[in-house]
Design a protein around this nucleic acid. Structure first.
Ligand SMILES: [Mn+2]
Ligand SMILES: [Mn+2]
Ligand SMILES: [Zn+2]
Ligand SMILES: [Zn+2]
Lengths: 157, 157
DNA sequence: TTTAGATCAAGAACTATTCTAAAAAAGGAT
DNA sequence: ATCCTTTTTTAGAATAGTTCTTGATCTAAA
């Protein structure tokens, strides 16, 4: 899953090839990624990333921003975050975490899934948060499909 | 939030007014709702509901299906279920539950959030399920917005 | 029965995203 | 450096799911 690029060979010239998951770190990808790291970490949408990216590279196109976000997502460098039907947002936080969406200010907050968890509440919200709705979604293979796609016929659970 | 309709007055004729959350149970809404209850409980999309609804009422329109799904959702009779950017699906299960989306057969399964939960796993997947991705999203008010919208200035946690 | 409001239906409009195709850039080999 | 191949970028067209608009139809109450 993490296929590193065998690069930085024998020349002194610095290529753009040493990055996440065998992904070429092009100028545009760097700009897009930096937008997610630099700014307020507020889970911007593609359009918001586009505007901010233009500040660093005025020639960048929206299509490229979409392309970069997709490749960064596929390489595992960032995560795509969906809240209901709204435009996708993007997040550079690779720790396993939940998302808290404030229906008032429309901001998205990261909720760490590991620290200070209790049995009843596997996460810890900031003091004063009010949860109105909780959503848990899993993606995977159902028993039937796990069964029919097994490569080894042994005992896996 | 649950504003019941003050109906079923003094006449014997049966109106269509005794339903969820003060919602008129029109012919179309009933058809749409019945599709979700009747069939395989497979979390169909609006288009799928439309096709099935046409089986019961050939004149129904897609726009009406969307309208019905929206009003049923707002009245709390059904739930809208979103998986990534795919078309919304709809679910008549009002129990608090998670969703398991099989990336192979693309079916959506309900996962009860209450029964047989342990501290480490607050839900119980069917034997043989393989989870590849877990997503936890909350919606509510962040501390800042809770603070600025408080009606009583007392101590709430 | 009249009337005001709710709902339905058909199609247009909208929007986030993906696709297409051509130009540009990058990297390897010579 | 130059040629060649592959990848990436770009602009705009296309797509898909959903929402909006408008007029017709239905409903409940007066
Ligand atoms: Mn995040
Ligand atoms: Mn469900
Ligand atoms: Zn807020
Ligand atoms: Zn399956």
């Amino acid at each position: 899953m993490a296929y590193l690029k065998k690069e930085m060979s024998n020349s002194t010239q610095n290529t753009q090839a040493d990055v996440f998951g065998g992904l070429r770190m092009t100028k545009q990808r760097k700009v897009v990624y930096d937008v997610l790291l630099d700014e307020t970490r507020d889970h911007p949408t593609a359009s918001q990333v586009f505007v901010r990216a233009q500040g660093k590279m005025p020639t960048i196109s929206l299509a490229t921003v979409y392309n970069c976000l997709e490749s960064l997502t596929h390489s595992g460098a960032i995560k795509q975050v969906n809240v209901d039907r709204e435009a996708s947002r993007y997040c550079p936080n690779l720790q396993p975490h939940a998302h808290f969406f404030c229906s008032d200010c429309e901001e998205v907050f990261d909720i760490d899934l590991k620290s200070r968890a209790t049995a009843t509440t596997p996460w810890q919200l900031p003091e004063g948060s009010e949860v109105e709705q909780l959503e848990v979604t899993m993606r995977g293979k159902c028993p039937t499909c796990t069964d029919s796609t097994r490569e080894d016929s042994g005992s896996e659970n």
